[in-house]
């Protein structure tokens, strides 16, 4: 079975969803990401959904679950690139995705995660002495 590649950039993991996912693939991504967060001590997860033409309740739930699980594992999740029509549909569906951070594009998303990492690095420097 095919799987969705997970790239490591610094202390962040990057996932670009480029296929119309069937449910099993979405579930597998959730498990793979959880493993990789721990493996790489990742501080952030960036999920690019700009290629997704729809987000239904199943994929919405997957995104919310990834955000919850990664938070428990001390990593921030940012979903980037949601299409406007997808956002409109999600709200009407009743899924505001509470607890899921979003950014308009990957650059801003990385800045969000990078910002978190930098803040912590600065705080860490202060504690070292």
């Amino acid at each position: 079975m095919d799987s969705i590649p997970i790239l490591k950039i610094g202390s962040a993991l990057l996932v670009t969803i480029q296929v119309d996912m069937h449910d099993q693939l979405a579930t597998q991504l959730q498990e793979d990401l959880t493993t990789r967060i721990v493996e790489h001590h990742a501080r952030g997860v960036l999920i690019d959904i700009s290629a997704l033409e729809i987000v239904d309740s199943f994929i919405g739930r997957m995104l919310a679950n990834i955000a919850s699980v990664s938070r428990l594992l001390d990593a921030d999740t940012v979903v980037v690139g949601m299409r406007p029509e997808v956002a409109i549909t999600l709200v009407e569906l009743g899924l505001g995705l509470p607890g899921v951070k979003t950014a308009l594009n990957a650059e801003r998303g990385l800045a969000l995660i990078g910002g978190v990492a930098r803040d912590e690095a600065a705080a860490g420097d202060g504690d070292d002495d």
Partner: peptide, 17 residues
């Protein structure tokens, strides 16, 4: 329209599931 397409496809996805 693109928004209407997206709404219909999303509804169809829910119901097919």
């Amino acid at each position: 329209s693109l928004v209407d397409q997206t709404k219909l496809i999303t509804a169809a996805s829910e119901l097919a599931r």
